[in-house]
Amino acid sequence: MNSFFKYFSEIFHGVKSLLTGMKVTGRYFFSPGEIVTQQYPENRKTLKMYDRFKGEVIMPHNERNEHRCTGCGICETSCPNGSIEILQAKIDMPDGKKKRIIDKHIYHLSMCTFCGLCIKSCPSDALAWGQEFEHAVFDRAKLTKILNKPGSSIIKDIVE
């Protein structure tokens, strides 16, 4: 008799647990307001990334096309993957001395792991995170970027 009772209580508890589960899915079925899915390409206009978002490494330039990079190469050595290459140039200063400046700050986006060590280690705060995240391109070469814009120069007040 005891096992007979157990048989039915098993069925009862089983069915009850199944109905509990069905209640959850049923509730979501009838409350489509809880859907949190974003419609990505459509919401591109309104999509706002967080201000600390790590999209890519950029070099901010001011309105006079000046940046803060001295070409010291600390970012190059601190990068674990070799995604940064610094090409330096020498210019003649008015006082006859030669000074090293940045020629090209080459950034390989394809190799970057977004660890942030270049930005953290930069002594003159020349690098920053960009918010751009749509990096898909058809040509791999497009992922190699030159961060200092053509014709740009260093902001005057930066001392090495």
């Binding site: 967080y50 600390r52 978002f53 977004f114 942030g116 953290k120």
Partner: peptide, 15 residues
């Protein structure tokens, strides 16, 4: 995570 550290999965946040 994204708001504080800028990334969602691989953060490299501790130094």
């Amino acid at each position: 995570f994204e708001e504080s550290f800028g990334s969602r999965l691989l953060h490299s946040y501790y130094t």
